[in-house]
Simulated scan of single mutants.
Amino acid sequence: MDSALENPDEEPAALRRSGHTAVVEGNTMYVWGGCMLTAVDEVVLPNDEIWLYDLETGVWEMCQMSGEVPPPMSGCCGNSLSGCLYIFGGYDENGQTNKLYCVNLLDGEYSWRKVNPVSSFPPSPRDKMCSWVYNNRITYFGGYGHKKLHDIWDDKSFKMDTASLELERGWGWNNEVHVFDTTLTRWTEPKTCGRVPTPRAAHAGATLGYKGYVHGGRGMDLTTGDIHCLDLQSWTWSEVVPASIVPPARSWHSLTPVSDSTLVLFGGMSLNHQPLSDGWIFDVEINKWSELKRPNQNKQRLWHTACQAKDADVVVFGGGCHYTHPVGRNENLTSHSNGAFVIQTQPYPLLRICEDYIVKNRTSCEILQNKLRFLPQNLLQAVLRRISRKIIL
């Protein structure tokens, strides 16, 4: 089940975009960067602003950013850790990057700082990777980027894109694992064991406990629908073999944890380059996929973001709605979204059901209007926050 979050009387303030970063802290979703389609070209969005989306009222607010602001870019990897947003990699006007930036989301200042690791070397420049957060560490996997040619020839973890070869460097996909320790401010590259996933980009990842999961993605002549797990303590890979029907292979999709044992997959791009709108739940305890039954199947999205919210909701924002088949290295998303909507993954608790009913029916039911003041205090406050903005879920 899904439901719109937008104010029915207003369009969301945030610009249409894809390849952006979004994280949730408390009842707020923070959105930064990405690209959008103009009448002439696809351009990256301003780097000195961050958009705040109130998940209770559906209201947007734009805040200016300062400090060591990252360049405008898309395809970077963003994570929230201890109230801070970390972004790594991405694609700017000079191509893929391997810079790391951090900003405090909770102090209201939104001042970026460039993170300079101590006595360590970062991964090579890349974008469209995935990441997992565990034990104050951010672990990055895969992506598409470039390396110097003499570093590629014997590198089994890098699959070169022969269509993108230059005199001194080459582009391609990788299946490398790199770890950034936010406490020690240091990069490491742990030695993993087990069956390593093939090199890929535009895949989706999610963290459950001390395990990182990766699904799908694109590589050399490859779009996959496999799922793998990396133990973030022992650094052991294992391929997960589902015990049931599996979602179609895809890339540019999202994978979101909603409980200690379940992940939600949404959207992406199919093998024949069609945007998808289907949703699936994967139970890691029984290795079983089940398709979500959603009333609206017209919200195709790829290269969007999907964040976990309260009551096991998944909040989807932005993304491409259409896709033009790539010619050479050029890939064209022909339209973008600035819509935010919720995928409901489980029945709501009674308090949430009451809140939704009151907000939805308050204007048509005279009894409700006259009795609002008798509601329990926590329910009343939640209702008042929403009706003050005329938000209906």
Rank of each mutant, 00 (worst) to 15 (best):
S3D: 08
A4V: 03
N7G: 03
A14S: 10
A14H: 11
T21S: 15
A22E: 09
V31Y: 04
V31P: 06
M36W: 03
A39V: 07
V43Y: 00
V43A: 05
N47K: 12
Q64M: 15
E68V: 15
G75K: 04
C76R: 03
S80L: 15
S80D: 05
G83E: 03
Y91C: 14
D92T: 01
N94L: 11
T97P: 00
L100D: 07
E109M: 14
V115C: 03
P122K: 05
K128H: 11
S131I: 03
N136E: 11
G143R: 00
G145I: 04
H150K: 06
H150V: 03
D154E: 10
D155L: 08
K156M: 11
A163F: 07
E166R: 14
E168K: 13
N174S: 15
H178Q: 06
V179P: 10
F180K: 01
V196A: 03
P197I: 04
A201Y: 06
A204E: 00
G216D: 04
R218S: 15
G219P: 08
T223W: 01
T224W: 02
G225I: 03
D226L: 04
L230G: 02
L230Y: 03
D231K: 08
V240W: 01
S244D: 01
W252T: 12
L255H: 07
L255R: 04
T256D: 01
S261C: 14
S270G: 11
Q274I: 12
P275A: 09
D278M: 05
G279R: 02
G279N: 02
W280F: 12
W280L: 05
Q297A: 15
Q297C: 15
L302N: 00
C307Y: 03
Q308G: 13
Q308H: 10
K310T: 13
C321I: 13
Y323E: 02
P326R: 07
R329D: 12
N338V: 05
G339V: 04
F341N: 00
V342A: 08
P347M: 08
L350W: 00
V359N: 09
C365H: 07
E366C: 10
L368W: 03
N370Q: 14
F374G: 02
Q381W: 10
V383M: 08
L384W: 08
I387K: 01
I391S: 14
